[in-house]
Simulated scan of single mutants.
Amino acid sequence: MKYALVTGGSRGIGKAICLQLAADHKYNILLNYHSNMAAAEETKSEVEAIGVKCELLKFDVSDLEATQTSIESWRSENPGAIIEVLVNNAGITKDGLFIWTNQEAWSKVIDTSLNGFYNVTQSLLKEMLRKRYGRIINIVSLSGLKGNPGQVNYSAAKGAMISATKALAQEVGKRKVTVNAVAPGFIHSDMTSNFDEEELKKLIPVNRFGDPEEVASLVCFLASERSSYITGEVININGGLYS
């Protein structure tokens, strides 16, 4: 039985990715979440309504031991299952000018995005290499490419993920494992709910924010066999804001 694991999959872009992977590719979904059980349960119900399995894995991606324990426990209970697709989507923001950014705000953002990428990918990569097939898709950000004032910590975390994507792709390509990054711009989600959309959309050539489903469609293409000659790439999805 084939699965896709999506970290931070209960809401926003992560939820849209879970639903699209289930609908387009009929992948069973492993939905990782950290704290919002109600949202995770709701997404699970919507995924299962499509006709595939959805299992919830509660762990903090920044905690290596918790991540490994959760994944290994699931594997022991599902010995025939294969995780073919990994979407590293979990991330948080703690915005503010760098001069006022305390060590906790710095470390927590780095730990969730960058160390979370390490913790989850390390736990799954060996099996992908043994099976000689895998798709790793890292959700990064416009901030990681352009840099964003007030988000030095987030820009640093996502920029590092971009470099890691390019390096890892070169290590594992011969085993038919691809590694790509998707860099959203302004997308309707909890993270952008406090943004001044009317002002910001004036900067965007297509004159609007994107929808989570649009990001999910791109992720689904990269998760498919049709994308087999694309690896080490960072694909922008930002309405032309920064390309």
Rank of each mutant, 00 (worst) to 15 (best):
T165F: 01
E199V: 10
I139D: 08
S243A: 15
K108I: 04
L21D: 08
V182Q: 09
T69C: 12
K15H: 11
E77D: 15
A16D: 05
A160L: 01
N88G: 01
I139P: 02
V215F: 14
L31T: 04
S155V: 08
T112M: 02
K58P: 15
I162R: 08
S155Q: 10
F209H: 08
Q20T: 10
V47A: 06
S227A: 15
A90V: 00
A49M: 03
L86W: 04
N138E: 04
N148T: 14
S217Q: 09
L97N: 11
S228G: 11
D211Y: 05
K26L: 06
S193P: 05
D60A: 04
I82C: 11
V140E: 01
G240V: 07
E72F: 01
L5P: 04
E198R: 07
K201H: 07
P212C: 12
V206Y: 08
P184W: 02
L145P: 01
M37H: 14
E48M: 14
T101W: 03
G210I: 09
V177D: 04
K94F: 05
A81G: 14
Y3L: 12
L218Y: 04
E55L: 07
A90T: 00
S163P: 15
G147V: 02
I50R: 07
V140W: 01
R132S: 14
I99Y: 12
V215K: 15
E225F: 02
L31C: 10
S76K: 11
F221S: 02
I230D: 08
Y133I: 05
S243C: 13
S217A: 11
L114N: 00
T112P: 14
L125N: 02
